[in-house]
Design a binder for these strands. Sequence first.
DNA 1: TTGGGTGCAAACTATTTGCATTCGA
DNA 2: TCGAATGCAAATAGTTTGCACCCAA
Lengths: 137, 137
Amino acid sequence: MNFPLDRDGVVQLLHQYNITPTRQRIEIAGFMFQRAQHLPADKILEGVNAEGHNVSRATVYNTMGLFAEKGLVNEVLINRERVFYDSNNAPHHHAYNVDTGELRDLPSLDVQLNNLPEFEQGMQVVGTEVIIKVASK
Amino acid sequence: MNFPLDRDGVVQLLHQYNITPTRQRIEIAGFMFQRAQHLPADKILEGVNAEGHNVSRATVYNTMGLFAEKGLVNEVLINRERVFYDSNNAPHHHAYNVDTGELRDLPSLDVQLNNLPEFEQGMQVVGTEVIIKVASK
DNA sequence: TTGGGTGCAAACTATTTGCATTCGA
DNA sequence: TCGAATGCAAATAGTTTGCACCCAA
């Protein structure tokens, strides 16, 4: 993904992911894909409407749920209070600052897993998530 | 930790972690440390009281929050719906079955991180959490 | 004795849902 | 046109909080 995405890029992207590009979805995606960022639904609602758009709370929640389901964004569950949506859908890991609540991408982090046990028949690994927790000394 | 812990073991453990051993805390810890397990607060409330005890909802939430803060148990944030408390406080990682919601320990998993970027001055890594997501084929 | 701990119910907050209205194809 | 999408408000669920009472040290 090369940020930011213009309106055409957004529409194209939505099509690629089999998402009907409505006005609201285009505006939400346009806002999310300005840059790689991690935002809770609330901030997305705020941000989209601050750009002069008019999208309801329910639509933001529904839309982000849809985007996550379709793989356009990733949900990051770190903080018990709320879900963060990550506009970077390339495989990568995160550093979480437990003091500030800040979430940071670790795009170059290379993870090697040794001694991974076998899973039951019919099970397959669908993802590996690594979260490095950091704090002030 | 060698499960299960008897009452004396629990009291001793609470002392070790600087937690005043009240009746309710002993009952909650006694229930949690019967075995290595991952439970949401709700199930802990249910389980403790099913053993014939009488502990309120608020006390379970407060107590598990305290236990987590003191490092006696670990919070596992996987599911947006609720926090899981892990009675195994030894360093280890998890496999999460996205279909069933089941959470499993991976005690032997060895994780090697390469290319970890430098963090700002004054920051230190306080933990590394790996979650392997598995699903039915 | 007394400060911390507990219980209850009410409050809170993120998220979901029901349903009438509107819109995209 | 017509099923899908949206908006609003009400509902939901997990969790937290205020406050009076109680207990461990």
